[in-house]
Design a protein around this nucleic acid. Structure first.
Length: 342
DNA sequence: ATCTTAATAT
DNA sequence: TATATTAAGA
């Protein structure tokens, strides 16, 4: 007990987006546990529904075959677990952030939109009892989510509980890619935590999560700029002017009605839209995968995300379209509208 | 009100 | 190490 497996949507080829995988790790008394849910596993919808008999009724009756027992979520889960094992030995990836220097990359891609990041339902806590998270939708037109996907296990805690303490979110390459894509598409100017969070449309993601990551990400970009051409090993080709379609311009509020729906996270239908990408712009897309912002080292060698047609290779992100210069060190001067004063 | 940054905590 | 949390300034 204790192992929870989650399944995500799986598309054999149709997806233009990819990913899924999130890890939540628990850490309260010092012990750490890592839960991972696999990606790329067929979803019940894609596979023959286990809830249905594989044998046509007529046939069944003709041969006096007794109907199979109902499949419960647990069964499904178990079944997927098996599949998992297969995939594992098959080469599907897995990560843990331990001393795993040598990383791999995989080509298996799938899944579409609504990613889910779940908090561990554990309440061992001292104090702290009030936490209100308010989901407010701004003009971005984000679809409302509510379903927290199936958490199948013996544990049945209401996922809707926003009162739970979220565990450390692990920015998996998939999640990160999502993040990067969104940031790229927003343009540095609009890439602020709230918006990013909304566009990412990842359930469970908080503004804090994004803010924190963003901070690190910027740090990383800055570092990259500094090294733009020098390096011990020589592998800096990080130059690629990414026009970043700044078609996303909202004046703070009051717009209303743009076509920026990332996808319906509502438990159904497949939302199949990677990123908002307004207008059929060339989509400079900033695919890419970098060694997680820390330092070069995590995914050394670089793994490639290969999206449906986008080669994820040259890093295509250059913070160079700042409104007034390019320097972040102390509040990039904004066009100045909202007065910082009260 | 939210963002940004640095410092610090887990 | 990665991520969270907080404080202070804008």
């Amino acid at each position: 007990m204790g192992e929870e497996v989650k399944i995500s949507e799986f598309e054999v080829n149709g997806g233009d987006d990819e990913e899924a995988t999130a890890v939540v790790d628990d850490e309260d008394d010092g012990d750490q546990r890592v839960l991972e849910w696999e990606i790329g596993l067929p979803n019940c919808d894609d596979l023959t529904p286990l809830s249905q008999s594989l044998i046509p009724p007529e046939l069944a009756s003709a041969f006096s075959i007794s109907p199979e027992p109902r499949r419960t979520a647990l069964d499904v889960n178990r079944a997927s677990h098996d599949t998992l094992s297969s995939l594992r030995s098959s080469g599907a990836h897995f990560f843990t952030n331990n001393n795993n220097k040598t990383n791999n990359n995989n080509n298996l891609r799938s899944l579409n939109d609504p990613m889910v990041v779940e908090p561990e339902g554990d309440g061992s806590g001292s104090g702290s009892g009030s936490e209100s998270k308010k989901m407010r939708k701004t003009d971005v037109g984000i679809a409302e989510e509510a379903d927290s996907a199936v958490r199948t296990t013996e544990n049945s805690e209401d996922p809707s509980a926003r009162t739970l303490k979220r565990q450390r979110l692990v920015w998996t390459p998939q999640l990160d890619k999502r993040f990067v894509d969104v940031v790229a598409h927003l343009g540095i100017k609009n890439a602020v935590p709230k918006t990013i969070m909304q566009l990412m449309n990842v359930e469970g993601l908080t503004r804090e999560n994004v803010a924190s990551h963003l901070q690190k990400y910027r740090l990383y970009l800055k570092r990259m700029q500094g090294l733009s051409n020098e390096g011990p090993s020589a592998s800096d080709q990080l130059f690629a002017s990414t026009p970043v379609p700044q078609s996303l311009h909202e004046s703070g509020s009051g717009g209303g009605g743009n076509g920026l729906v990332v996808g319906g996270a509502n438990g159904n239908g497949h939302v199949g839209m990677p990123i908002p990408m307004p207008s059929g712009a060339p989509a400079p897309l900033v695919p890419v995968a970098m060694p997680m912002y820390g330092h070069m080292g995590m995914y050394q060698g670089g793994y490639n995300h290969q999206q449906n047609g986008y080669e994820a290779n040259s890093y295509g992100m250059q913070p160079r379209d700042w409104p007034g210069g390019n320097k972040y060190g102390s509040v990039a001067s904004f066009p100045n509208h909202m007065d910082p004063k009260s």
